[in-house]
């Protein structure tokens, strides 16, 4: 994903009129990839969540639905750049090990990219895989009950020892919490010191 830096909004294709100010220059921010009109349509998730162990940045509104569709299902990998600044701000200074929720290898081949890893890469966040996905089924098509009663969906990755370490799990979207909870359990069962979670979106 090299090539040219972005001059037109990645979502609506209108020109991005970013005036480079001293602040943007000195604070070393990522250049914008979407226009302010598109940005305003994303709705932040309230900063004070009930469950403090999961931090989420945005609500799942129409704009986000559209974004996720284009990124994950239309496979527009470039859109991994859209939230790089926000993700960087939240995770760059964290001491804990960043662990993306993994994809099943078959699913990965189908999608051709790991959408969570890609979000982190674009935000310059170092991450490490501790888990592997052992089922190919997706959470999307299930009822709430089915999801909660689901079989184990993850296993510990070979040669990784989480004992005594702190972790932040990262996923694109938090729906019922099954995914995060299952992943968390694997790490805690292997004696991880603490596990919290960060997701881009929360429904």
């Amino acid at each position: 994903m090299k090539r040219h830096e972005v001059s037109k909004c990645l979502l609506c294709n209108n020109p991005i009129d970013e005036s480079v100010t001293w602040i943007t220059l000195l604070s070393n921010q990522f250049p914008r990839t979407i226009c302010s009109h598109c940005e305003d349509k994303f709705e932040p998730y309230p900063a004070e969540p009930i469950d403090k162990t999961v931090i989420s940045l945005y609500k799942y509104n129409e704009q986000m639905k559209d974004y996720l569709h284009r990124y994950k299902f239309m496979h527009d990998v470039l859109l991994a750049k859209v939230f790089r600044h926000q993700i960087h701000q939240h995770l760059a200074k964290k001491e804990a090990t960043i662990v993306p929720i993994p994809m099943h290898p078959e699913k990965l081949k189908e999608r051709t990219f790991a959408h969570v890893d890609e979000l982190l890469k674009q935000a310059n966040i170092i991450y490490e895989h501790y888990l592997i996905k052992i089922t190919t089924e997706t959470q999307g098509g299930k009822t709430r009950e089915q999801r909660i009663n689901a079989r184990q969906i993850f296993a510990l990755k070979e040669n990784q020892n989480p004992a005594g370490k702190e972790f932040i799990l990262v996923d694109d979207i938090y729906t019922t919490g099954t995914t995060i909870n299952q992943a968390k359990k694997i790490l805690l069962d292997a004696k991880a010191k603490s596990v919290t979670a960060f997701t881009l979106i929360r429904r």
């Binding site: 090539r3 001059s7 284009r70 527009d76 470039l78 990965l108 081949k109 051709t112 990219f113």
Partner: peptide, 23 residues
């Protein structure tokens, strides 16, 4: 050329390219 994106394709395990123009 700006509308082409190169990325590491997990299917081919190499650099592949896609077109955003008709995405």
């Amino acid at each position: 050329q700006q509308e082409f994106v190169q990325y590491t394709c997990a299917k081919c395990e190499k650099e592949c390219v896609y077109c955003r123009h008709c995405l």
